[in-house]
Design a protein around this nucleic acid. Structure first.
Lengths: 377, 377
DNA sequence: GTGAAAGCGCTAACAG
DNA sequence: CTGTTAGCGCTTTCAC
């Protein structure tokens, strides 16, 4: 029913070879012929079958993107950035959700049935041990996102340890001492918690196990539950470092329900600079990785591998910066930094690791009475 | 390099026909042969090339999902639901972002180059006029999501008008009279605003243009800006109906910044029941569509069309329900309905259109002084 | 039960 | 500059 290249050839009175030449913009087709072929293509409403082309070329123009889920804003934003980056380079992106079992999923994708369907795979594991990865031998180029991983994979991501340390250092600079952490029980969380530990150590604060809240996952309710756990244990931190923004927003909710004021009673800092954080109440201090840069790098890396680059696996570090908002600096700071509230699209992320706004390093006075959270005036 | 079916055949001492038979679980292959072929497959680490199979079969096992973006939580959650539903039925999902120009994107996907790459297309337009759609003649099955659309497309979605009316009726039942609306300037928003209008009319409240806030889009900052616009105009509503949760969460932020208490000063209700809404401060009253049901229906519909169903385009309506939370009922109501805070996964959505919790229909007293937003005790 | 062979629609040597 | 032709790797009709 649909026209083929041969139909076009016959219709135009040329051979199929000439039609491909026209389609693929080869040189050395006479203008006259080209015109005739073009007309036939239009007239027959011919559209080349990409599947046949794929078979012939051995490439599909499709990348697989494996993420745990799309509910957590970070993965939604990351996916969007990656689809953008891929589209720019002419690739389609197939989303695979690794929910249940990332390790199994990777094995499936990298070694099994679907593999030939994709030209490359971008894998963003959340909590994947090095061991699971080691035994995977891939049939296609793979780029790993998230935590650095020991294996023969290209990797692109922020310096989790350093970034987390930056975040916690900020809390310390604000005068906090009893700093809890939420989100350790997880691949990425381990690195970020390590950064937390280093920042404490550097400031001469002892690492206190009781300030580490257990978390099963990285959703809003996990953050909420972890915070509740801390509070129920009678642990009363004066700050919380959350291994991602989603956990942090969940924690904010629990603090709110407990009648605790953020940041006066407890300061909160997240990680990822998800859009929601800017609109959270209070708005969330966080670590902002350059997501667009990350996406571009990942796709570029993949393309390079597809083109035959066989250099050893690279570990690409993308810049991050600390963004200070109300959840650590209070309303005053937010008011002083209207950028925290700017309209999208945001300007390209800076490459510094320092706070964007010069907030006073002195800790806000903590009145015994709770301040009005609605921030009248 | 990679083994083909012929390599396996030779290795097993059979013909390629027999190998396919084994692969596709045909009957009438002797156990002995089957075993031998299986062993060869394992030994050669053969994995069938899906692209070749696609070409032969004329199907790719891929669905295209076109959504405006993934930043707005609704689309992220919708996409996740659709990927789940598709995966269950053996389909992969390619995400296409329609950002800039949905009409053009649809034309591209449905009629041009990529079409043969997908077995079906799920299109979730945000603000797409009927006109743009009419001239699109599709080369593949399409299911439309979101607003009902005049065209020859299958459609699945909630009854936007009725659902919006339910939401606004709830506000009226809570004693609100000056109800603003955010999000009209948009395909879906038009229907929802129509529901808003009907609910007002039904209650004998006049529709006041000055309570309609202009919005350019459906992101957090659009909600925030629209709310600010209302307030700056000196319009002081006692409630706001937002055409989606994302707008509502943005609006909450602006109200917070203006020192207004929700719901005491202004009640807010959203639409979509996005995960974030449950953790917003205050938690957000909203309309909950059955997203999983919607996703399943959309994919089923597509599969049916692929199987040759040529019945006239269907308009499938999925159930919705009103979920009452703090943003209209105050803290007390939330405390009384712990479900609003339950852990994921949520139970299947009910099919009723009524509020899940029986909140008092009496309006909470509005003290002159602002209440403490942090909700001590 | 299994083999031989045609062909899905396209691209790219190889001739001319 | 253009025509002929051999596949890409798989499924399937048709024979045996």
């Amino acid at each position: 029913m649909a026209a083929t290249i041969h139909d076009v050839a016959r219709h135009a009175g040329v051979s199929s070879r000439t039609v491909t030449n026209v389609l693929n913009d080869y040189k050395w087709v006479s203008d006259e012929t080209r015109r005739r072929v073009r007309r036939s293509i239009d007239e027959l409403e011919f559209v080349p079958n990409p599947v046949a082309r794929n078979l012939r070329l051995g490439r599909t123009g499709l990348l697989a993107l494996a993420v745990p889920n799309l509910m957590a804003s970070y993965f939604a934003e990351l996916s969007e950035a990656l689809v953008d980056a891929a589209t720019l380079r002419g690739f389609g992106v197939v989303i695979e959700l690794t929910k249940a079992d990332p390790a199994e999923e990777l094995r499936l994708l990298a070694t099994r049935a679907r593999s030939r369907l994709f030209d490359g795979l971008i894998f963003s594991p959340l909590g994947l041990g090095p061991r699971e990865l080691h035994e995977v031998k891939c049939m296609l180029p793979v780029v790993m996102l998230g935590e650095r991983v020991h294996g023969d994979f290209d990797h692109v991501g922020v310096d989790n340890v350093q970034a987390a340390a930056d975040a916690v250092e900020h809390l310390i600079a604000m005068g906090r001492r009893r700093i809890a952490v939420i989100g350790r029980d997880n691949g990425t969380g381990i690195y970020r918690t390590e950064g937390y530990r280093r920042a404490l150590e550097h400031a001469g604060i002892v690492y206190d196990e009781s300030l580490v809240a257990p978390t099963s996952n990285y959703f809003l309710d996990d953050g909420s539950a972890a915070m509740a756990h801390l509070l129920d244990q009678g642990v009363m931190p004066d700050a919380v470092f959350c291994c991602n923004d989603t956990l942090a927003i969940g924690a904010l909710r629990t603090l709110f329900e407990h009648g605790l004021h953020v940041p006066n009673d407890v300061a909160v800092v997240g990680f990822d600079d998800v859009d929601d954080g800017r609109y959270a109440i209070p708005s969330l201090t966080t670590i902002a990785p350059d997501k667009a840069g990350l996406a571009a790098m990942a796709v570029d890396r993949l393309v390079r591998r597809m083109d035959g680059d066989t250099s050893p696996a690279a570990d690409l570090v993308i810049p991050h910066r600390l963004v200070v908002r109300e959840s650590t600096a209070g309303l005053a700071a937010e008011r002083a930094t209207p950028r925290a509230h700017q309209r999208r699209p945001r300007p390209a992320a800076s490459t510094t690791r320092q706070a964007t706004s010069g907030v006073a390093s002195k800790r806000p006075s903590r009145s015994g009475a709770r301040r009005d959270g609605t921030g009248t005036s």
